[in-house]
Write a protein that binds this DNA or RNA. Sequence first.
RNA 1: GGCUCGUUGGUCAAGUGGUUAAGACGCCGCCCUCUCAAGGCGGAAUCAGGAGUUCAAUUCUCCUACGAGCUGCCA
Length: 497
Amino acid sequence: MKIRTRYAPSPTGRMHVGNLRTALYEYLIARHEGGEFILRIEDTDQERFFEGALEIIYRTMEETGLDYDEGPDKPGDCGPYVQSERVTAGIYMEYAKKLVETGEAYYCFCTKERLESLKQTIAGKEIVAYDKHCLHLSKEEVEEKLANGTPFVIRQNIPNEGTTSFYDDIYGEITVENAELDDMILIKSDGYPTYNFANVVDDHLMGITHVVRGNEYLSSTPKYIRLYEAFGWEPPVFVHLPLITDEEHHKLSKRSGHSSFEDLVEQGFLPEAIVNFIALLGWSPEGTDEIFSLKELIERFDYKRVNKSPAVFDMVKLRWMNGEYIKAMDEAAFKKAAESYVKAAFAQAGDDHVVTADGVTLSETAIDKILELVRTRIEVFPDIAEKIDFLNKMPDYDVEMYTHKKMKTNSEIALEVLKETLPILEEQTDYSAVGLHDRIMKYIEEKGVKNGVVLWPLRTAVSGKQSTPGGAFEIMEILGKEESLRRIRLGIQKLEA
RNA sequence: GGCUCGUUGGUCAAGUGGUUAAGACGCCGCCCUCUCAAGGCGGAAUCAGGAGUUCAAUUCUCCUACGAGCUGCCA
């Protein structure tokens, strides 16, 4: 049988990484076997509906590469793919009534007040266990209330004896006492189905073979099983996924600031890296590889290897992985993605140049050099700003910086070196890194000192920073002759003061 | 409270009735080197606790502890 999985988000906001991982695994399970993957929108809660959330879902699926075979915007044989439209079509009410007819469900007219009176507080939590009050209404009473328009819900009728079991492909056999199962609402008083009911009906009607979802549904799955049985339907394969938590081992929440795909993209992460990273949260492949494209994930994904225990979302490792993706990008793609961050680090920017706060115009080729230098030094694009701030504006630095034990320099030596190299650099016309290198190395050789003795002061003078992407030559090449000399003279001034 | 699930280094994790208990991130050190990265090499660090089964338990069983989820006319 062909595998069919579905991703069924509700449009309530940004896409949570837990949901994204569920979508990913559903996609992978289907694609690995050459099966089908569909998108269904579960918008049965009108109150939580969020304008624009649908677009977020479409865009996220697109950016992550999770292409689906059927969905609201990809008609198939099981439409409509939006639950509110299915409500209009009367699908859920029809199935709910079938259950009422067979005694598997019943109308409930209980008021909010009565339900409230059933509420009890246990261990600080309010708990309602419905008492099947309306199950005992006579047929006539029900007809009458229905006829005079009394608001109602339809509840599932679960017996108080016996047990219900099911097999989860990850967690194994799970059994629950029926008495533990509340008579959950199938159809709400507004005529909309609850998630629980719509999910079962749609999964069956849409031919879903593998239901993949978060761990939080594990304990309510027996109720779903009873629904399948009540309808006489074959339950699907269940694949429950472990939770993704924050560093404190709590369910990843919006407060963490990186709970959604969109948050992560805003922070400069690449969709490919995010997908790769979350694929490894709760699943691991055979072997020790960790960097996988979506295509490779499809080939290697075996859901039987999914873990049972929760996984902490580790930003540090995500950052590392993103850095790996940055390093692996081809030049053009990297430039496209990083250029705007480089330009933003300067006072002014044009199409093919940039002007520093110190008034120096840097050409397109200088920008390309910067891009190259920065590439292996960042994990996320916003890191660029801090790395190159000194190019935009010469920082005010302490002369102490010229003293470096390992480089065997101090203020006196630095002053001497700067004074000696200044005329050489004034004469020098070739300001390419190679040209500068050759000329200065010649000087170092003549002087008979270690490289650091000369290069540390030069780099310091030209950058004013303890560490920089690239060395003295690269920086001078980018800055150009005039600005480089200006900075060196500034250094001499500082050292003489 | 009840029910369900989980627990291998700080984190992601492999793994098995007998292993020197993989690998990755991070951390530390060394090499390279004009700084910082990158790259290379190496190091520290793990089977929650207690019983039981067994010649042998990280692995199987039970208990405890801890954590999480559910207990909504949310999904």
